[in-house]
Amino acid sequence: MTTLTPPISDAQIRALKVGDPVEVTGTLFTGRDAVHKYLAKGGALPAGLDLRGGILYHCGPVVIKDEAGRWKVVAAGPTTSTREEPYQARIIEQFGLRGVIGKGGMGERTLAACQAHGCAYLHAVGGAAQVLAECITAVRNVYFLEEFGSPEAIWELEVERFPAVVTMDARGGSLHRDVFEASRAALAERL
């Protein structure tokens, strides 16, 4: 089991390979459809927010305010990553991401960007919103809450032992490509 704590080095990411289980301890930033489109079209990050060496989590959490007025994440699993395929490669390059957490995998452009810039796709279990929310120890900040709404905002989260599996590595490996090809061949035999 590899523990990843952002900021992550190029060497540490390149050491990972498809199938490796990892746990993230440290800071995660959520970002999904609205954030990806905004950043890929030239939008700027809010002042003071730096994603370099960091991990972007494709997630729109359920967040409520507790009695004391503090943010509380009550559910926080990954969303389907493939929707960000048109934008992800550019964001990995421009903002220096070392990791993307999501579900369902991504395509060839993202895979090439992972290889070129030293990034890995980390697959969390889709739908496992409670187990993953339990790993969140604090909500540090929220950005773009007004503009994009709660699920689409950038939430800055502290996590402890957040579990994921490397399914796309920085060496050109993709479990998603492999499973798709194998399942397509298996189906062809059964038609």
Binding site: G60, A128, Q130, A133, P163
Partner: peptide, 25 residues
């Protein structure tokens, strides 16, 4: 198998805490 185990843990936790199984409700 790890994914299925985590799914099962999640089901039990959501029921116990009376919170959404998945954040996409």
């Amino acid at each position: 198998a790890s994914a299925m185990e985590l799914i099962q843990r999640n089901i039990e936790l959501a029921r116990k805490k009376s919170q959404p199984i998945c954040q996409d409700t």
